[in-house]
Structure formats: C-alpha cells, structure tokens
Amino acid sequence: MNIFLLFFFGFIFSFVGSITPSMLNMTALKISLEKGKQAANKYAFGVSLIIIPQVIIAVILIKYIAQNPTILETLEKVGIVVFIALSYYFYKESKKGKIKIDAVKTKNRNPLLTGIALSILNMFGIPFFSGTIITLDVFKLFSFDAVSVFFFTLGSVLGTFYILFLYGKFAKIIQQKTGELTKDINLILSILTGLVAVFSLIKQLF
C-alpha cells in the first residue's frame, strides 16, 4: 500500500469531515475573532493532538473486526445504512439557517487546553475514523502495518489542523457567509455520502 496515498486519504477525509460548521470549527472561528489568529492556531493544535489517540483506537477496533469476517460483513451492510442516514442528515441540515456563533462559549480559557478538552469531548471522533478506515479497507485501500497507520494518522492530524486553521484565518469572511456556507457544504456532503452508500451497495450485490 502506498503510504503517501494513505496520507492523502487521512488528510482529505479528516479535512472534509471537519469542514461543515460544527462546535469544533465554530469555536476556532470565535477564538480567532475574540483573541486573534495565533490563539486560534493554538486551539487548532490542541484539537489535532487528540486526533492521534482517536485514530489509533479506531485502527485497533477495525483491525480486530477485520480479523472476524462475519463481523466485517455485517458492518459493511450497516455501513450502507449509516451512509444513507448521513446523506439524509446532511440534506436536512442544508435546509436549516445560520448557526449562531455567539452560542459558542470560549470564556477566558487557554486556547490550547480548550482545543484538547473539546476534542476529547467530541463523541464522533472515534466513530468517524472507524467508519473512514472500514470504508477504505472494504475497497482494499487501507493497510494495518505500523508505517501505513503512521502516515494515515499524520494525514488525519494535518487535515483537521488545516481546516481549523482556515476557519481561524478567514474568520471574518466565514462569519458573514456562515448561512450560505453551511447550506452548500451540507448539500455537497449529502451527495458524497449518498454516492458512497450507492457504491457500497453495488459492491455488496456484485
């Protein structure tokens, strides 16, 4: 398996998975507006640090599952349902209005510690990376050897950091365009997850 390809997959999945407005990136935006870009970068670094154990835990879980064909086959079927549900969820989200940035609480805490704390509390981290890894594994695009996992993890960390960096860097522009941005991104994600569900279903049938 090409390690640079795994780095790319880690980066792009992590980047795209974090691009839609959520608590993590809205906090990056708010910190940037209130405390400046340097503070937002520290926050992004804190969030990204926690990606490392999240990916490692996901790899361990999926490696165990991959060694049990019955579980893997069941998860592939469940994955189709999950991607259909995600497609519907993002479609519904695209119909909603603007996220209230003022609702995000940053207080006067250290940006780095805030990033670490919120990333730990993010319940979707491990399931997201587990889903990403199992999707890649289904299409024979993932390898569980140490070097491959390292590059995939590195890509995931940098992908997360970069999207949060962009939220901080372009905070004022994003603040003005959040409603339109949210609608467009969620619609794109709805289409992408729908396509993954279709391809996964075709693979199951043929």
Rank of each mutant, 00 (worst) to 15 (best):
residue 11 F to I: 02
residue 13 F to N: 08
residue 15 F to M: 15
residue 16 V to H: 14
residue 17 G to W: 06
residue 18 S to I: 05
residue 18 S to R: 13
residue 19 I to A: 12
residue 21 P to Y: 00
residue 22 S to F: 01
residue 24 L to S: 12
residue 25 N to M: 01
residue 25 N to D: 14
residue 27 T to N: 05
residue 31 I to F: 02
residue 33 L to T: 12
residue 38 Q to S: 06
residue 39 A to K: 10
residue 43 Y to G: 03
residue 43 Y to Q: 07
residue 44 A to V: 07
residue 45 F to G: 07
residue 46 G to I: 05
residue 49 L to V: 04
residue 50 I to G: 00
residue 52 I to E: 00
residue 53 P to V: 07
residue 53 P to S: 03
residue 55 V to C: 02
residue 55 V to S: 01
residue 57 I to C: 02
residue 59 V to R: 02
residue 60 I to M: 05
residue 64 Y to R: 14
residue 72 L to K: 03
residue 73 E to Y: 00
residue 74 T to P: 01
residue 78 V to T: 05
residue 82 V to E: 01
residue 82 V to Y: 03
residue 85 A to K: 01
residue 90 F to D: 06
residue 90 F to E: 05
residue 91 Y to T: 10
residue 92 K to S: 07
residue 92 K to L: 09
residue 96 K to H: 04
residue 97 G to V: 02
residue 100 K to T: 11
residue 102 D to G: 06
residue 104 V to K: 00
residue 109 R to D: 06
residue 110 N to K: 11
residue 112 L to H: 09
residue 114 T to N: 08
residue 114 T to D: 04
residue 115 G to P: 05
residue 115 G to V: 12
residue 119 S to D: 08
residue 120 I to M: 13
residue 121 L to V: 10
residue 121 L to K: 03
residue 123 M to H: 13
residue 124 F to E: 14
residue 125 G to L: 10
residue 125 G to I: 10
residue 126 I to A: 13
residue 127 P to K: 14
residue 127 P to G: 14
residue 130 S to N: 09
residue 130 S to R: 06
residue 133 I to A: 03
residue 134 I to K: 08
residue 134 I to G: 04
residue 135 T to M: 07
residue 135 T to H: 03
residue 135 T to E: 10
residue 140 K to C: 09
residue 140 K to T: 14
residue 144 F to I: 08
residue 145 D to R: 08
residue 146 A to R: 02
residue 146 A to I: 07
residue 147 V to P: 05
residue 147 V to A: 13
residue 154 L to E: 03
residue 157 V to S: 05
residue 158 L to H: 11
residue 158 L to S: 10
residue 159 G to V: 03
residue 162 Y to E: 10
residue 163 I to K: 14
residue 163 I to V: 15
residue 165 F to P: 02
residue 169 K to W: 07
residue 170 F to K: 14
residue 173 I to F: 12
residue 173 I to W: 15
residue 174 I to G: 07
residue 174 I to R: 06
residue 174 I to V: 14
residue 175 Q to F: 07
residue 175 Q to N: 13
residue 177 K to M: 15
residue 179 G to L: 04
residue 181 L to N: 08
residue 183 K to Y: 01
residue 183 K to R: 15
residue 183 K to D: 08
residue 184 D to N: 11
residue 193 T to V: 10
residue 193 T to A: 05
residue 195 L to R: 12
residue 196 V to D: 07
residue 198 V to R: 03
residue 202 I to R: 10
